[in-house]
């Protein structure tokens, strides 16, 4: 018989390396005389979309389009180290470094422009849609490219290098106090599953995932990260297990270490929660790993809701579920009180 259940999982997750480990990201920026800009950083985009985020940050700051920004990454000859693509840290940490560097280059440009426009302060200069000009005076503006080109003829370049460091401290082992991570990400997910009571097989039908991302710099990517994390979370909950024997991995292949296929992944509905993280670039913080955390709790809780058995080790394999069902029946008879199992 197939039984359905619903479960909730909540999670919080400290992003970045944490525990006082040096967590430094860096970026070089140059605004070019064709009206484009380059961002160089060691941060490698492995598919999570960090390069797109950096282009968006630079474009937003410079009044350009993301496609006007060239992002150069992961080249030890030319890019400054920004640590690993890990720990859910690039949008926040490297994003902050990029933002600082862009603002630094922009400040020089605005100072230069203020002088060119005979303004007393750079406060009155704006960058908008590829133009640079005096705020509120449309007659005093010129294409950004022209301004940078002329400046260049006079030996002026708009180049910057900046770093951003996430400050954390190790936890005091005596009293558990400290600031081991910053920032924290939060999320909650609801899973609906169907459990086959004859075989112990679980199919996850639906996941609704709500995640606080500070600010979604790229909502499409946020959805993609959440869906990817949910798929991994489903694998984590139901099938993925590294089998070790005397230190050797026994299943080091896709034929023996199974991950979910398109048919194993549920319908995923994402809810983006934007609660500004004031220390992040435009209020943003990371999402990659945190979105995986609630999934497995939601799935395992949904299994309990469906068939009344608590699975306490991962993955929740059909073997474990069926054994628990057999045990439950033996103890309480068919349809035994699930409260009794829980206590």
């Amino acid at each position: 018989m197939k039984k359905r259940g619903i479960g909730l999982g909540c999670g919080w997750y400290g992003t970045g390396y944490g525990n006082g480990f040096p967590d430094v990201s860096s970026a070089f920026v140059e605004i070019h005389d064709d009206g484009s800009a380059t961002v160089s950083t060691g941060a490698v985009d492995v598919g999570q979309g960090s390069s797109t985020v950096f282009a968006q940050i630079a474009a937003e700051e410079l009044g350009l389009e993301p496609q006007d920004i060239t992002v150069i990454t992961g080249d030890t000859d030319t890019t400054p180290d920004s640590g690993t693509s890990a720990a859910t840290r690039h949008t926040y940490n490297t994003g902050n470094a990029v933002l600082k560097a862009v603002r630094e280059a922009k400040e020089r440009l605005l100072d230069h422009a203020a002088h060119e426009f005979s303004c007393t302060s750079a406060q009155g200069i704006e960058l908008k849609e590829g133009w640079i000009g005096v705020i509120g005076d449309p007659s005093r503006r010129q294409p950004l490219a022209d301004m940078v080109f002329q400046a260049r003829l006079h030996g002026e370049r708009f180049i910057s290098a900046e770093s951003s460091t996430a400050r954390t401290t190790p936890v005091d082992r005596e009293n558990g106090q400290g600031a081991p991570y910053w920032p924290y990400a939060f999320g909650a997910q609801v899973a609906e599953v169907e459990v086959d009571t004859e075989t112990g097989l679980v199919q996850v039908l639906r996941i609704i995932a709500a995640h606080d991302v500070g600010r979604a710099i790229n909502p499409t990517q946020v959805e993609g990260q959440i869906a990817g994390a949910v798929a991994q979370g489903v694998g984590y909950a139901l099938m993925e297990e590294v089998e070790l024997h005397e230190g050797v991995i026994k299943n080091p292949a896709f034929s023996s270490y199974l991950i979910p296929t398109a048919l194993d992944v549920p319908n995923i509905q994402t809810i983006i929660v934007e609660e500004e993280e004031i220390t992040g670039p435009y209020g943003a913080k990371g999402l990659g790993e945190p979105a995986m955390v609630p999934t497995l709790a939601a799935v395992v809780n949904a299994i309990y809701d469906a068939v009344g058995v608590r699975i306490t080790s991962l993955p929740a394999t059909p073997e474990k579920i069926l054994a628990a069902l057999v045990e439950k029946e033996r103890t309480f008879g068919e349809g035994g009180m699930r409260q009794n199992i829980d206590s």
Binding site: A227, G228, A262
Partner: peptide
């Protein structure tokens, strides 16, 4: 039918959602 047709192609990033 789409999920079935793509079921021999593993993806670890997207969760297949946007692919479908």
């Amino acid at each position: 039918e789409i999920k079935e047709a793509m079921s021999g192609n593993l993806c670890r990033c997207t969760g297949y959602d946007k692919i479908v």
